[in-house]
Simulated scan of single mutants.
Amino acid sequence: MLSGYVIGVDEVGRGPLIGDVVAAAVILAEDCQLPLMDSKKLSESKRSVLNEQIKAQAIAYAVAVATPEEIDRLNILNATLLAMRRAVDEVVRQVGDVAEVLVDGNRCPQLPHRCQAIVKGDAKIPAISAASILAKVHRDAQMLELDTLYPHYGFAQHKGYPTEQHLAAIQKHGLIAGYRKSFKPIKALCQDALSG
Results as ranks from 00 to 15, higher is better:
189 L>M: 15
45 S>P: 06
22 V>C: 14
146 L>S: 01
145 E>K: 09
79 A>F: 01
65 V>G: 02
154 G>Y: 09
125 I>F: 00
145 E>N: 11
91 V>Q: 00
55 K>L: 01
30 E>T: 10
16 P>V: 10
8 G>S: 06
179 Y>A: 10
59 I>V: 14
73 R>I: 08
196 G>R: 15
114 R>I: 13
111 L>A: 07
108 C>A: 12
185 P>S: 08
19 G>R: 00
72 D>F: 05
104 D>K: 04
31 D>G: 06
20 D>T: 00
45 S>V: 14
72 D>R: 10
160 G>M: 06
133 I>E: 00
110 Q>C: 14
18 I>A: 08
168 A>L: 15
73 R>E: 13
83 A>R: 01
18 I>C: 11
149 L>R: 15
48 S>Y: 10
63 V>A: 01
77 L>E: 07
84 M>F: 03
172 K>M: 14
118 I>D: 09
99 A>T: 10
16 P>A: 12
192 D>Q: 14
31 D>P: 02
9 V>M: 03
59 I>C: 05
40 K>C: 03
139 R>L: 02
27 I>R: 06
15 G>Y: 02
129 S>Y: 04
105 G>E: 07
47 R>A: 08
130 A>E: 01
58 A>W: 00
58 A>C: 09
86 R>T: 01
117 A>C: 10
21 V>S: 02
62 A>E: 03
13 G>C: 02
148 T>M: 12
31 D>M: 03
147 D>P: 09
85 R>G: 08
93 R>S: 15
36 L>T: 04
